[in-house]
């Protein structure tokens, strides 16, 4: 053994087999992927930046408020006295303010009227089951019925302000249809009130029914008067076409008078829309 160091340096040095190398690499990459994802999740779940935390809190508050708002706005069981009711009313106010056209305003009012009525029915039904806080519940039912009548009155008023006759007619038809539903619901509520022998609610229901019938009558009268206008228009056109058949001179006169009539009518419509 003259050169011991050389012998030692030549000791066998086997390498890691390719298969094992691949196995280790696979384990390393797998760990890296999970670890990397874990880090990202950890940063998301445990934010270190102040603004990130603020953003998270804001987002969480928005999600909670948003989901509560959606839940409250679409749930008839959220009645006066419920903790989410103020939120529901706030959303309704926003909804009303966002209704820009008269048509949309009427639709919103109709929807709200129906909602108030359903709430009133729920309140009355709950009261039968629980039979507590009767006074407060009755007061809420009355308040809801007042609001219902108020909304319907407003809807009718707005419908009368719509200049376009066709649109106005369509809106009025909608109101009439809704009112029929409302009357059905009111009858249900009346039944509940009678079951409870609650005369105050029964009276209030009757009042609301009367108010709705009054609005129905107003709408029907409007319809009749608009029909009359249509008829007069038609007859005017018929007269004008007859004159056209006779000679040219009367045609000129009739055209002039026709124009006057139309311009009067146009003024009427303008006044109406104003």
């Amino acid at each position: 053994m003259d050169n011991l160091e050389k012998y030692l340096s030549n000791l066998p040095k086997p390498k890691l087999s390719r298969l094992v190398d691949l196995k280790i690499r696979f384990r390393i990459y797998r760990f890296m992927i999970w670890k990397g994802m874990g880090n990202s999740m950890s940063t998301l779940l445990h934010p270190h930046s102040f603004w990130l935390r603020v953003s998270y809190m804001t987002l969480i508050i928005m999600i909670v408020l948003g989901s509560s708002a959606v839940y409250a706005a679409n749930n008839d069981n959220i009645t006066p006295g419920h903790s989410l009711y103020p939120l529901k009313k706030t959303i309704e106010t926003v909804e009303q303010n966002l209704s820009l056209t008269k048509n949309a305003q009427v639709n919103t009012l109709n929807k709200l009227s129906e909602r108030r009525l359903k709430e009133a029915i729920n309140l009355a039904s709950e009261d039968i089951e629980k039979n507590d806080n009767e006074q407060e519940s009755n007061s809420n039912i009355k308040q809801n019925l007042d609001e219902l009548v108020e909304n319907l009155n407003e809807a009718v008023t707005i419908s009368q302000e719509i200049g376009d006759q066709d649109k106005a007619q369509q809106v009025k038809e909608n109101i009439k249809e809704k009112n029929e539903n409302v009357i059905k619901y009111l009858e249900d509520l009346g039944d509940i009130a009678r079951q409870k022998r609650d005369h105050e609610i029964s009276d209030k229901v009757d009042e609301a029914k009367q108010a709705i019938r009054k609005y129905q009558k107003i709408l029907e009268d409007d319809e009749k008067s608009s029909n009359k206008k249509e008829d007069s228009k038609k007859s005017l056109w018929e007269r004008r076409s007859d004159n056209n058949d006779d000679n040219d001179e009367p045609l000129k006169n009739s055209n002039e008078s026709g124009r006057d009539d139309f311009s009067d009518e146009g003024r009427d419509e303008d006044n109406g829309s104003d």
């Binding site: 990459y29 890296m32 670890k35 990397g36 880090n39 990202s40 940063t43």
Partner: peptide
């Protein structure tokens, strides 16, 4: 996402 990218760069 950026963190994930930085992590993979550092590791790989």
């Amino acid at each position: 996402m950026v963190n994930l990218f930085v992590y993979y760069i550092a590791m790989g």
